[in-house]
Design a protein around this nucleic acid. Sequence first.
RNA 1: GGAGAGAUGGCUGAGUGGUCGAAAGCGCCGCACUCGAAAUGCGGUAUACCAGCAAUGGUAUCCAGGGUUCAAAUCCCUGUCUCUCCGCCA
Length: 416
Amino acid sequence: MLDLKLIREETEKVQTALLKRMSPEDLDLQKIINLDNQRRSLLLVLEEKKGERNRSSKAKPTEEIIIKMKVLGEEIKTEEDELNKVELELKEAISALPNLPADDVLSGGKENNQAIYTFGEKPSFDFTPKDHVELATDLGLIDYPRAAKMSGAGFWIYKGAGAQLEWALLNYFTEHHNQRNYRFILPPYLLNESSAYASGHLPKFREDLFWTEDGLCLNATSEMMLNNYHRDEILPTEELPLKYYAYSACFRREAGSYRKEERGMIRGHQFNKMEMFQFTKPEDSWLAFEEILTSAKEMIEGLGLHFQISKLAAGDCSSAMAKTVDLEVWIPSMEIYKEVSSVSNALDYQARRSNIRFKNSNGKNEFVHTLNGSGLATSRLFPAILEQFQTSEGTVKVPVALRKYLPEDLWELKKK
RNA sequence: GGAGAGAUGGCUGAGUGGUCGAAAGCGCCGCACUCGAAAUGCGGUAUACCAGCAAUGGUAUCCAGGGUUCAAAUCCCUGUCUCUCCGCCA
């Protein structure tokens, strides 16, 4: 949520920034200001009347005053209803506004995304490379048919060496984050509706979430959980920045997505992901952004995978974010870079919605800044490892960084 | 799943319809005393919004949302959470 004061006081600036990610016909700041003016004038009258009622209720009233207050009470009720209506409308209008893109974020949509960094090179094969589905099946790492039997399309089962490789990745991440003093969180996988609103995933992603009969939804990214972790709290200033990382399985309906082009485990209903999250003082958040980005980058580089970093254009960032950078790993069979991590700074946009504050140097409560970055999602790394590190014999050489988590006979994955 | 108890300021805890934004204690901050500290004494100590240049004033907030009443921390309803007992438990 944007600051209403900012909208009122720096309307031009807000307008210009928002136009980087919105079309002019969707943007009407004057409507918001008008609603707020309406709200203020209603408040003025209403509070005066309430004040009068309070003064008359300090002691036992006379019969005459009771009659007067009865009438006043009716008026208050009517005006309160009116105020509530205006406030609701105002809240909806302001909640619909996305965050202000950071200054260095380009306007427009996906087409304006910009590759800003590349690591390694596209592997070239002097044989016909297999895709990851073929490799995973041949090497007995993943069982697709049984997963389909048990749960339907869009699921897979890690088995044997495949499960161990997946687990090794998670161990690799854990160790990486622990070394950087992030606190490990294992959150619940189900969360209630109000949390999904607070994290900003509702109402927008209602169709993309799985829902239980109890009205809970399955975690789609632990960003949802970490966002809510400190909801309605005033964080101890001396503990900032607070750094967390969480592991959870993530569940997404991915309704209407492109199964055909995204075979195997590129896009499924359930995948494993670790998430980094920071709560910082406002002045520290861009530094934290770089730190998270570097951390994610180092993890992929440590695996030796070819990947690139893209700075997303304003319209391609999710709406809560001032800036988002994607780390995308090369999938040879698809000839495309696929996101394995998304690093974002929400500034105070999420904190305002979740009401997470700290005491600033003036002793005033101020909203913190929140940042998050995947660290990392395995479901694209796994295919990338299989495809990028396959050999002409049909085996896969496991990245050195993962070998300490695996028995020696799995350092090269071979057909059994 | 059934029965019961509870939720009050940073904390403990009083308050069962009006003078209660809320006693008391603790904590914290300031001042006094002291060479300094402790102890003691005095004063202060929530948040949000609105009006105002400001001083200040107003409104709301006693888990949340509704309701009753001229008036609600207090009465009624619903929900959430916590605790106790019983049942169930792949």
